[in-house]
Design a protein around this nucleic acid. Structure first.
Lengths: 261, 261
DNA sequence: TCTTGTCGTGTTATCATACAACCCTGATTG
DNA sequence: CAATCAGGGTTGTATGATAACACGACAAGA
């Protein structure tokens, strides 16, 4: 009865379908934290699959911290806070507002990271940034090599904070942003864009090199504004809360500013 | 002929052990992206477990985007960028510098989030914050209810940004921080701390209520600095210089003990 | 009545085997 | 030479069995 098994597309594996189905039950509150799941046998017959498949699905959910199980007792829904992994599934990525929200989160991270990096960078960090920048110079705009070096530059900045989590989070978010861009498709490239983008990166690097935290975050803000407009991010848009304009973060200004230029 | 797997402790499930073992091979570069994994049968005999266990481990790694497999061909190591989940394993959490770095990341998020929240908050958001604050007033400092409402307050702030990813990321990071604190154990509590903490929260709420973004981030900054000192961390604010790791020997020592769920 | 020990049942964890679906390769055949 | 097809290897799924464990029922003893 609880099975829905609606044509889940992604992943031809039955275990994937079962896992998403159970996951959905939890997300929609039909299975609350503490509730006991049906037995593996019951789930197997319910879904019409073998118990083995159910076990793979449960193993997956358990690794995500969504459920926990104990031999001899059963499987139970875990507290949402106990999730040990942060995951953004592909479906929600394809929604338009997801892209904007992700971009905003990324911007928030980047701007702060740039400031920290300017204060803490080592010579090796600078070298890594310069190497990535060189890679971008020799690769055609938008090519795989270009994107790789672009990400590499930002990762180098993040690593210059000497805080490994900065890079970890930033790369994760950036990758989701990139996927989102790819999902949306359609973007035009030009040599002009390449020059502009490179210039933005160079200004960031210069500020970090000089140890100028304020300048670094300002340069990063400009870069993000430019990047937003290059990927055609609709700025100052309806669903964004029309909030008090004058006084808030540069991030917001960045998102809004790209509409103008 | 039982498993020989090196010392892995956490997770009584064999599939967990196998998964972390393979995961470690990937992390340490002994299995590079594109490489083909041994066959399931081979892995089964290598680890001394049944093929079923290996399949559960692989299902888990596949769901994390670390590997991909195709029927009839085999399983292959995926590009690191393709990881669909962000995970911080329990072991690294127990290192003292992990705690400091996580706290710094959390602070970076919170300060920006507070500013955004002040600009975008709705009445419902304000109500949620006040409810959480009330919950903190009636609960003893440091109790489960207190912590729950504390997190609830911060989550409400994050949700006031109208950007769901903010809350998602913040809660994730905060939970890791909390785990880290629990792992360290023995915090001393006092009524004084309760009052101070409550006051900090109230100032944050007031600024957000007033739509004062600058004030909100300033209040949040003060709160984080206070929280940092309360958990025995020097300088909560995003300071320019990386804190010296040597300062935290007390934390590191305490970390040895297991966390109580 | 209360405690304690035992047992049976249900559940998960693991094992073992078999078959189906699929990919790749190489030989066969037109 | 090209197309086809047979075979082995690999993953995906199904099935049945056994071990480990949790939990309640129940009887024996104090």
């Amino acid at each position: 009865m609880t099975l829905k098994l609606d044509k889940v597309n992604r992943g031809p594996h039955l275990s994937t379908l079962v896992a998403s189905s159970i996951s959905r039950e939890i997300a929609q509150g039909r299975l609350k934290p503490g509730d006991q799941l049906p037995t593996e046998q019951a789930l197997a017959t319910t879904f019409g699959v073998s118990r083995n498949v159910v076990r793979e699905a449960i193993a997956r959910l358990r690794s995500e911290g969504r459920i926990w199980s104990q031999q001899g007792r059963g499987a139970f829904v875990a507290d949402a806070a106990n999730a040990t992994v942060l995951t953004i599934d592909y479906e929600t990525l394809q929604r338009a507002d997801s892209f904007r929200n992700l971009f905003e989160l990324r911007g928030m991270l980047e701007v702060q990271i740039a400031a920290l990096a300017a204060a803490r960078r080592s010579d090796a960090d600078i070298a890594a940034m310069e190497e990535a920048l060189d890679g971008m110079r020799t690769a055609p705009y938008g090519s795989v090599a270009w994107l790789k070096n672009d990400l590499g530059f930002h990762r180098a900045v993040a690593e210059a904070t000497q805080n490994p989590y900065m890079g970890q989070f930033l790369v994760f978010v950036s990758e989701r942003v990139r996927e989102s861009i790819l999902a949306a498709g359609n973007q035009q490239k030009s040599d002009d864009m390449a020059r502009t983008t490179l210039g933005e990166h160079e200004r960031i690097l210069a500020a970090i090199k000089a140890g100028d935290a304020k300048g670094a975050s300002a340069a990063m803000t400009r870069h993000l504004a430019g990047a937003a407009s290059r990927v055609g991010l609709p700025g100052g848009e309806a669903s964004a809360k029309p909030a008090s304009p004058a006084r808030h973060s540069r991030l917001r200004k960045a998102v809004r500013g790209q509409a103008a230029g």
